[in-house]
Amino acid sequence: MTMKNKVVVITGASSGIGEATAKRLAKDGAKVVLGARREDKLARITREIEAAGGQAVYQVCDVTVLADNQALVALAQARFGGLDVLFLNAGLMPNSPLSALKTDEWAAMVDVNLKGVLNGIAAALPIFTSQRHGQFIVTSSVAGLKAYPGGAVYGATKFAVKDLMEVLRMESAQEGTNIRTATIYPAAVRSELLTTITDKQVAAGMGELYDQYQIAPERVANVVAFAIDQPADTNVSEFTIGPTTQPW
């Protein structure tokens, strides 16, 4: 396996897809660096990984702050001697109709879902460029592939990272820096995303959908591991992940 001893930084690592991915990659021999805003959860996950024989460190990180992203990358270099993969997983989904004018929530989604990704790229890209290898993986959403009412701003941020990752891959190929990218489009996955929805009608509808269709975050972690574990000369760009029973 190519996973063993790879240094992987994960944002949004305190729950859901981030937590499941950290545990899966550590089990496979990667050295994981966890970043999120909730220190108590990061500390617990790190202890659990270490107890299972894995290697992990953590640092509190707000992805909307460039310096926090840079500090997380620096921690990877200081503790594990380098950086191979940055999994940009932090995200918010406070969906609502545009007519509700929840502009503060719009701004929060842009800051975390898009600017947070850009901050991560800014922190790691110089390292990847210098060493002439590296991989960015980002959690988008099926909302980054198809539009639906109530998800305009969330979807816009997730459509944006699709383009961002593809252009990043193309530019790296032109520049000969060998940087790989992968974009993941999960459907309903068990996580804390629904807790950010303040619109009662939208929250009720999304709750019913997730109750019927959601799959475990470990399913996404498996795909992240697959993307990382490909040979250095192979890029796997996009994955749509959802429940087999979902009819739309």
Rank of each mutant, 00 (worst) to 15 (best):
A78D: 11
Q246S: 15
Q131E: 06
R38K: 13
G207E: 15
S130M: 10
A187F: 11
A187P: 00
I127E: 09
D211R: 12
L125Q: 09
G54M: 05
G120C: 01
T2A: 11
R44V: 15
P97G: 09
D229P: 02
Y185N: 06
I49D: 07
L114T: 02
Q77K: 10
G144K: 05
P247D: 11
A173W: 13
Y148H: 13
I127V: 13
K27P: 13
D111K: 05
D229R: 05
P97Y: 11
A143T: 15
V33A: 10
V60I: 11
F136G: 03
L101G: 14
E218K: 10
A76Y: 08
A71V: 03
A76V: 09
S130N: 13
P149F: 03
F159P: 05
G120Q: 01
R38V: 02
K41I: 13
A74H: 08
N89F: 01
G18I: 02
K200D: 12
T21I: 02
L98R: 07
V9Y: 06
T198L: 15
L209S: 12
A173D: 14
G12F: 08
G53N: 00
M3N: 12
A227C: 08
Q246Y: 14
T11R: 08
R38S: 05
Y210K: 10
V65H: 12
A22W: 08
G150F: 04
P231E: 10
Q230V: 06
T46V: 07
F80K: 07
A20R: 07
T157A: 00
V153N: 03
I197R: 02
L86V: 15
N69C: 07
E50R: 14
L42D: 12
A90T: 03
D199Q: 08
P149N: 05
D104S: 06
L34S: 07
L25C: 05
E192F: 09
G16S: 10
L42S: 06
E48G: 03
G82M: 11
S99I: 15
E166L: 07
L72E: 03
G134V: 07
P186T: 05
N119W: 06
E48I: 05
K162W: 12
Q201K: 15
S191V: 08
R79G: 08
S130A: 14
D199M: 07
A108M: 10
Y58P: 00
L75M: 03
Q174T: 11
S237D: 15
D104L: 14
I241L: 00
L168A: 00
A107H: 09
G134W: 04
A122C: 08
A122S: 12
R79V: 10
E105G: 04
Q212W: 13
I228K: 01
T11F: 08
R132W: 12
I184P: 00
R169Q: 11
V110D: 10
G207F: 08
S191E: 12
P186G: 03
L72Q: 07
E166F: 08
R24Q: 14
A160R: 02
T157L: 03
E39W: 01
F87E: 00
P243S: 15
F136V: 06
P94S: 03
V112L: 01
G18C: 04
G120R: 00
G29M: 09
